[in-house]
Computed example of a mutant assay.
Amino acid sequence: MAIPRPTISLIVALFTLISLVESTSDTNNVFSPCVDASVQRSDGFTFGIAFAPRTSFFFNNSVQLSPCDRRLSLSSSTAQVAVFRPKVDEISLLTINTSNFFPGSVGGYMVAFAGRRYAARSIPAFVANDTFIVTSFTLVHEFRKGRLQNLYWKRDGCASCSGRSNFVCLNNQDCAIRTNNCRNRGGSVDCSLGIQLAFSGTDKHETVFNSWYEVKNLRQYSLFNLYSNLRDSLTGQYNRFF
């Protein structure tokens, strides 16, 4: 039976970052975020993050669907998508440059997604509006026997921005920067998005993933220390916290 073309292929991508895993240990030949994959440790795994208004991710304003689902109207809206291919069970720092893109201009929310039959997707996470932007996130991929079951945003309850004047705590869960401090809004702060990525569950050989247990013990922004080559260009606003 022919597989219908996914909605995601119709979305105009403003930016795409695909970190291809060039390794003989990569057994996953699925490179589309809208196709199911079964993975083992050290495989590459492709998933997407769509940016749009919160209501755009719900069918008939009631049921949340994957951005790959053609019943959503994302292809006819201003929605944007980024595609990533991290290495399974390795802690990764994903970055999205906002110098020419502002999430608030396309609706201000994002959903991580992957798969077709299983159609895993996160709940919509607030990113930005005209007043605030959240620049740091932790995303966990939950697998069972190598199949993605769930994607969820792990929040720290604003512990990392307590007492810091440049940050505002939103809804007791997200540390945000005032948008007038961002470079693309006339300020001096680089408001590029940083997404810490980790894995939980088991691969197709029932090997347990360990990266989530490692990242959950790290404080917010700690991964920026491990990526010194990115810190100056993407996360210079955090230098004084190290």
Rank of each mutant, 00 (worst) to 15 (best):
M1D: 12
M1W: 10
P4L: 01
R5V: 14
P6S: 10
T7S: 15
T7A: 14
I8V: 15
I8W: 07
V12D: 10
A13G: 08
F15C: 15
L17R: 14
S19V: 02
L20T: 13
S23F: 01
T24A: 14
S25M: 11
T27R: 01
N28P: 13
N28K: 02
N29I: 11
V30P: 02
P33M: 08
P33E: 11
C34R: 00
V35N: 10
A37N: 09
S38T: 07
Q40V: 14
D43T: 00
F45T: 02
T46Y: 02
A50E: 05
F51D: 11
F51M: 08
F51K: 07
A52Y: 07
F58W: 08
N61Y: 12
S62T: 12
S62R: 12
S62G: 00
C68H: 12
C68M: 09
R70M: 03
R71W: 00
L72N: 01
S73T: 13
A79C: 05
A79K: 01
V81F: 09
V81R: 14
V81Q: 15
R85W: 09
P86Y: 05
V88Q: 08
I91Q: 01
S92N: 12
I96Q: 10
N97Y: 05
N97T: 06
T98S: 14
T98P: 11
S99D: 14
N100T: 12
G104N: 04
G108Y: 04
V111I: 06
V111G: 06
V111T: 04
R116E: 14
Y118V: 15
A119N: 08
A120G: 14
R121Y: 10
R121E: 00
P124H: 01
A125D: 04
V127N: 11
I133D: 03
I133C: 05
L139P: 00
H141S: 07
G146S: 09
G146R: 02
L148S: 06
L148M: 06
Q149T: 11
W153F: 13
A159P: 00
S160H: 09
S160N: 11
C161S: 02
V168C: 07
L170R: 10
N171I: 06
N172V: 06
N172M: 08
N172Y: 11
D174S: 15
A176D: 15
R178Q: 13
T179Y: 10
C182I: 11
C182D: 01
R183E: 14
G187V: 08
S188V: 11
V189D: 14
C191W: 06
C191H: 09
S192V: 10
L193F: 07
G194C: 15
G194L: 14
I195Y: 03
Q196M: 00
G201H: 05
H205T: 14
E206C: 04
E206H: 11
T207C: 03
W212T: 10
E214H: 08
K216G: 08
K216Y: 04
F224M: 14
L226M: 10
L230F: 15
R231C: 13
S233M: 07
S233Q: 10
T235W: 15
Y238V: 13
F241H: 12
F242N: 07
